[in-house]
Structure formats: C-alpha cells, structure tokens
Amino acid sequence: MSATPTLVARAGTFFHRYANPGRFLKLGARLQPWLTWPALLFTLAGLGWGLFFSPADWQQGDSVRIMYVHVPAAMLASAGYAGLAVCAVLSLVWRHPLADLAAVEIGPVGACITALCLATGSLWGKPMWGTWWVWDARLTSVLVLFFLYLGHIALIRAFDDPQRGYRAAAILALAGAVDLPIIKFSVQWWNTLHQPDSITLTGAPTMSSSMLWPLALSTLGFSLGFAAIVLARTRAAVMESRIRSLLSSPRRRGSNAAGDAA
C-alpha cells in the first residue's frame, strides 16, 4: 500500500505528458499516416482476399465470406468499449482531459461498428441458421453492448457542464464493461445458437489457414482503421476546443463577432 501513491503518481505523470494538447496534436499528426494508409491497405487486401480468393466453406458455402466483415467488426465492438472503459478510469482517477475527449469520439465510432456487427450477423444468420435474429446469450449481450454505446453517446452530451457529462459517461462505461466478459464467454457458459469461438488462446484454430489469413488481415485493417478514425476525430476535437477557448478568451472578444459573421 505504501508503494501505491508513488506508482499512481508516476502513472499520472506519464499520462499527463500527453495531456498537453500541443504535444498530442504534434504526436497525432505524426502518427496519423502510419495508421490511415496501412489500415486502407490491409482492409482492402483482407476483404478482397476473403471475397474473391479464399475458399468456400464445406458446409456454409460462399456465405462464409460474411465472416471477413462480421468477425473483425465484432472484435472491434468489444475492443472499442474496452477503450471507453480505459478512458473512463483515466478520466475518473487522473481527471485526464484527453481521455474525456477520446471517450466522446470513441462512442459513435464504436456504435457504428457494433451496428455493423449486428447487421452482418443478421445477414449471415438468415441464410445459415434460418433466422434473422434469436434471443440467445451471444446475440443479446452484443445488442446490450450496442445500447450501452448509445447510452454513452447520449449521456456524455447530455449536460450543459461538459465535466459532469464526462463523469457520468465514465461511470456508465465502467459499469457497462461487465458486458464484455459476458459477450466473450456467452458461447461457452450457455447453450447458444451462435457457435463457439474458432480462434482461442489455448487450442489450434478450428479454421483452415486459407480462411484464417484473410481474416487476420482484415481484422488488422479494421483495427488500424478504427484507431485512425478515432485519432482523427480526437485531433479534430482538440483543435475545436482550442478554437472555442481562443474565441471566448477576452483578448479576442473584438474579433469574435467578425469570426462568427464570416
């Protein structure tokens, strides 16, 4: 216990190095192309491979190609929410201003990717299972995740005082993180219509490598793309907050009206 304050403090200093908006913007601008272009390359390569060159499945036929969209989207839906939870801890414990801005920006992107996961799951379920939707544990827990995202988006923008919105949304993000292990293990804990994971940490993937490679490629591409979009949005948000503070600073009051009129 005696060691924790220094550890907490040291972690705080580390996180706050990048709380400086100028430093973040500089670093972000340098990082952006390294995320954007590989993301585009890997996503197109992975999806192209999956759509045109990977083999059809022995029982699902060509419908298995939906996997190359659905699985990366599902992984990112969870990973994005885990990102929200990390931001929430940074925000609640260290009052990190960038974590709040990042949380505002992760929300809509994560909600979109979760919607993509649900929609492609439906499009996959109809021809394969014979139904668009069932209320099994996996599908329901992902739907709950989608609503958690929507709640976060609404809550973080709901207050006139943004700080209160950040606090409330951070608490929601942390509480909602309980859903993540439920999603992950739902297919092992309960009977579900959804099949168990093909790729596990412990065993060999029950998937032909000729399908695993394009899947890995598109997962990498999707992840980089998610990061690139969140980074771009967070950079824009930092710039916008700087614009707001510039416009509202008393020194600039005179040009404020002119700027608004333009």
Binding site: T43, S63, V69, A119, L123, W124, K126, I229
Partner: peptide, 17 residues
C-alpha cells in the same frame, strides 16, 4: 446477403472516415 454485408461495411467505413 454477402454483397449486402460488404456494401454495408463499405458505407459505414466511408461515412466515418
């Protein structure tokens, strides 16, 4: 179904980026 999935992915990715 396959085309709808890929199309949806493209639309969402394009809109966001």
């Amino acid at each position: 179904y396959i085309l709808a999935s890929y199309g949806l992915a493209a639309v969402i990715a394009l809109t966001l980026s």
